[in-house]
Computed example of a mutant assay.
Amino acid sequence: MAEGLPHAKVTAAGHPTPLWAFDAPPDRSAYVGEAKGFWLYAVAWPATAGYVLAEEVVLHDLVESLPSALVFGAPSPYLHGED
């Protein structure tokens, strides 16, 4: 259970959403929270990339609308468990 103040906040579905840090391998940072009944996970690699959550981050549900300028790149090997 999350205790205390959140470690980060993002905007999800137009609402401020708290995120709490949880244990992760030392090469990455990980946060978890809940918005509108869905679990949100933010995993940043390298670990210092987690500082991006100190800025204003707005999440968009791509099911609702797809931005015209969405850029796709090569998938990260970290998404497939290849270290």
Rank of each mutant, 00 (worst) to 15 (best):
F22G: 12
A69S: 13
T11P: 06
V63F: 03
S68R: 06
Y31P: 00
L62Y: 11
E34A: 07
L62A: 12
V63Y: 01
A69P: 00
L66N: 10
G14L: 14
H7S: 14
P6T: 14
V32K: 04
V52A: 11
K9A: 14
Y51Q: 10
T17S: 11
Y31F: 15
E64Y: 11
S29E: 07
E3R: 14
D83L: 09
G73I: 02
R28D: 14
E55P: 01
F72S: 06
G50W: 00
M1S: 15
V52K: 05
H15P: 09
G4M: 11
R28M: 14
L53A: 02
F72C: 04
V52L: 13
S68N: 15
L59H: 11
E64D: 12
D83G: 09
L53M: 02
H60W: 03
F38E: 06
V52G: 00
V32C: 03
D61F: 04
P46H: 09
A2S: 14
V10S: 08
D23K: 14
K36Q: 13
Y31K: 04
S29A: 11
H60M: 13
G4Q: 10
V63L: 02
T17P: 02
Y51M: 05
A21L: 06
A69I: 01
P6N: 11
V43D: 07
P16E: 06
G37W: 02
A21G: 07
E34V: 15
L19Q: 00
